[in-house]
């Protein structure tokens, strides 16, 4: 069971404090643990840091790794920038979407998986590449990518 978002925020505040500069760290903590940032977490952070709710949303919506929509336990981020695009990223994405029955930026009904594309992840020498829950996977083929994702919890 995922933890209560407010509990995560409370823990984050002990770790990072309530200064303005703690905001991105607090959001990162919630986002990493829950895969997304629920409204109650935003409100709790706003209250603790005395930053307005809208301003917290502003920061959340600026960064592409943050999400205010629920996402899957596992997040696949497929690099869509040039070196990966040239080496078959499109086919891999197609394969993943077919295999798991979701569109880009969608989450499977069981909450297991979200597929996203992302800007260059710095693995161009081993393209095509993706990050799965932050871990790099390189020199992908459609089959290899599907195998990796299938093996996730």
């Amino acid at each position: 069971m995922p933890r209560n978002p407010e509990e995560i925020v409370t823990e984050g505040i002990i770790e990072f404090g309530t200064g303005r500069e703690s905001l991105v760290q607090l959001l990162t903590k919630v986002n990493e643990e829950l895969s997304w940032i629920p409204t109650i977490a935003i409100e709790a952070i706003a209250k603790a840091t005395r930053i307005s709710v809208a301003e917290v949303y502003s920061v959340v919506s600026f960064y592409s790794f943050f999400s205010i929509e629920p996402r899957g336990r596992n997040i696949v981020r497929l690099c869509s920038t040039i070196s990966c695009a040239m080496t078959g990223q499109g086919e891999i994405l197609e394969a993943l979407m077919n295999e798991f029955g979701i569109e880009l930026f969608e989450t499977t009904d069981d909450g297991r998986l979200t597929i996203e594309t992302t800007s260059c992840i710095g693995l161009c020498d081993q393209a095509p590449a993706m990050l799965v829950n932050g871990e790099p996977h390189v020199k992908l083929t459609p089959e290899k990518a599907c195998d990796i994702v299938r093996g996730l919890e």
Binding site: S52, Y57, S58
Partner: peptide, 20 residues
């Protein structure tokens, strides 16, 4: 007050309250 803020970035940027 800070009721409104800049949401999103780039071409999607707009002014709003967040989800509300």
């Amino acid at each position: 007050k800070g009721i409104i803020a800049v949401l999103n970035r780039g071409a999607d940027m707009r002014v709003g309250t967040g989800v509300k």
